[in-house]
Amino acid sequence: MEGTSVEAVRKTVRTYIIVFVSLMVLTLITVAVSVLHLSIGMAIAVALFIALIKGTLVAGYFMHLMSEKKLIYSTLILTVIFFMALMFLPISHALDNLTR
């Protein structure tokens, strides 16, 4: 972000405040939803969806991923692919077990 003008930074400060408020609201929503005792599938979907939005806000604005260099994107895409492999392959093995 070097070379960014003082004026531009001042503008982003406003963005940070908006993001902060949204994060707070989303936190309250996710807690509120959990009180409703939805079915477990629905609850997981809603909670993870909200967490995903919050995560995107933090990564996108606080970590400046909205305007980052290509190199960082490629690194992260690679990481996400392997992250997915790590998430889904062990569990599919467990579900595909012969002993089940």
């Binding site: 996710t30 807690v31 959990s34 477990i40 609850a43 909670a47 993870l48 967490a51 995560g55």
Partner: peptide, 9 residues
């Protein structure tokens, strides 16, 4: 992510 996964689900 930890918060909903551990506390809410």
């Amino acid at each position: 992510f930890l918060f909903p996964v551990l506390y809410l689900l």
